[in-house]
Amino acid sequence: MSVDAFNSAVAEVHRPSSPLAPKEGDILGRIGSLETRLARTASEIDAAQAVRFRVFVEEMGAQLSPEAMRRKRDFDSYDAFCDHLLVLDRSIEGDGEDQIVGTYRLLRQEVAMANGGFYSASEFAIDELLARHPDKRFMELGRSCVLPDYRTKRTVELLWQGNWAYALKHGMSAMFGCASFPGIHPESHALALSFLHHNVAAKDEWAVGALPHLARDMDLMPAEAVNPKRALMALPPLIKGYLRLGAMVGSTAVVDEAFNTTDVLIVLPIASISDRYLNYYGADAGRFAS
């Protein structure tokens, strides 16, 4: 499949140690009543964890620790040092905690290295990828979720405007993170996984796979048997959004029993972001990054 044909197919279809005073200058993007910014207080992070619980546990069937299930919060040790990107609907009455409709967890390389490494390294060979790029600064995107009523194009665009403004502000060179298919049977996603394997696999200096003892094949169908339009329709919206930006995918997948998902690794060098999206996000997000 040629690059032009692939692009055509795609086209179709911190935790703060103490509360921070709200300030206008930390807004990373706006679309209508929605705005995106980093969490300012521990209570906003708690509210984001509640949103994650609703999506990952109540909707997707994840099985978390007994304490997490009791508290109805998705949390782990990474929450203490990651930055938490929020999407808020300002038309909802109440405080910021009541207005959170989506969230992303952001982890910069220097912060990760000071706190034991990246979350994704528990599934994928991240250290090998980092070692090949000692001159680059990586950031990890994780725990992405949006409440059902807000799973629209503009919410996804706003999340990406926030990610892009954050990356610009901190001088990031590349982004990566896990993206998930529902369920723990990769074979049920044979078409989509095979499409990713044959068309957007990360190669050469960007090549990365799952840890050997966790690796599951993605090459489940021959290239000639993969219908690109059908495969794109079978991709989760988040993965489809990454591909539009110019992302690549790791060579093998991982089954996450606890979260009831099949995970793939997304790799997105800033230099690879499609000019169309670079101009689209950069024109607006640049002013938010200052």
Rank of each mutant, 00 (worst) to 15 (best):
M139Y: 00
L64Q: 13
D76H: 15
P66N: 10
R143G: 04
T103D: 10
F75E: 13
I126S: 07
Y150M: 05
L86N: 07
D76V: 11
H133M: 04
A125W: 05
I92A: 08
R70T: 14
E97K: 13
F75P: 13
V111E: 09
Q161I: 01
W160L: 02
E140F: 00
D76G: 13
W164S: 04
F124H: 05
A114P: 04
R70E: 14
G162L: 04
L158N: 04
G142N: 07
D89W: 00
D83E: 14
S120N: 06
G102K: 06
L106W: 07
Y104F: 12
I126P: 10
S144R: 01
G116F: 09
E93A: 13
V156E: 00
V111M: 11
R71W: 11
R105W: 13
N115L: 07
G94N: 13
E59Q: 11
W160K: 03
D83W: 09
A114S: 10
A112K: 08
P148F: 02
S65R: 15
V111G: 02
A114V: 07
L147I: 10
F81I: 09
A114G: 07
Q99S: 09
A80Y: 15
L64K: 12
F75G: 14
G116K: 12
H84E: 11
F124V: 07
F124C: 11
Y150S: 05
M113K: 08
D135F: 02
F81Q: 10
R105L: 06
R143F: 08
D135Y: 01
F81Y: 15
